[in-house]
Nucleic acid binder design. Sequence first.
DNA 1: CGGAATCCGATCTGATACTG
DNA 2: CAGTATCAGATCGGATTCCG
Lengths: 129, 129
Amino acid sequence: MARPAPSEARAQESPHSVSCRARDILGRIGDKWSLYVIFVLGEQTLRFTELKRGVEGISQRMLTVTLRGLERDGIVSRTVYPVVPPRVEYSLTPMGRTLLDTVGTLVRWADDHVERIQHARTAYDAREA
Amino acid sequence: MARPAPSEARAQESPHSVSCRARDILGRIGDKWSLYVIFVLGEQTLRFTELKRGVEGISQRMLTVTLRGLERDGIVSRTVYPVVPPRVEYSLTPMGRTLLDTVGTLVRWADDHVERIQHARTAYDAREA
DNA sequence: CGGAATCCGATCTGATACTG
DNA sequence: CAGTATCAGATCGGATTCCG
């Protein structure tokens, strides 16, 4: 398993350059629903419907799409049990679990700053009007 | 300055619930370009054009839109100097700076996992085809 | 239960042109 | 320099329907 030499090289050529492929990945994991799904999943293993209940406000379509994307990127693993009715379980892969701390921090940041940001928005909008 | 009691309450009712307003905020800061702009800005103060050069691949329009959003949310501050030609400087607000560690970690994670994710995608697509 | 497929309005985004 | 305005193509995302 090639563990590529991390951000050392990048850090030397330019202090803050990001490859366009990294941007692509940021787009995926930065997605509102992806963050939310990773956060809710945590260390657990959940079925589709359980996830849907956990990720409040997500539509079935978006949950499907989001999970497919995360699975494709190797962040979420999907296990299908060949029974009737179908049983499908989702959990984070080891790689996905390495995101957990950061995502948790981000989600908690958002939650902790709801009021201040709401306030900032109101102030900004008032200034514009 | 009201420093609202953080995630304690939330953590007790349900282990992983996120308010819909927090989701809204996640949507903003999780945005690919927002993350990127925050990352590039860092502790610096940069002009519009400098930012545009730093955030590789962003269009002028998206930089404008992104900055407006971040400014509205109180994450970025915008200073206009009434000179000709115009001079506008952007920097993170104190609140924005509290995001820096997390955003940096996320961006570096993406950068460090480009290869593995690319590989996972190829494997996934091959399985499907 | 866990989707896939389709439709369709809403939103996003790049390109281009113009401006104080 | 630092935008705004506008338009057209692309994408998103919810609602609905159907299926093994």
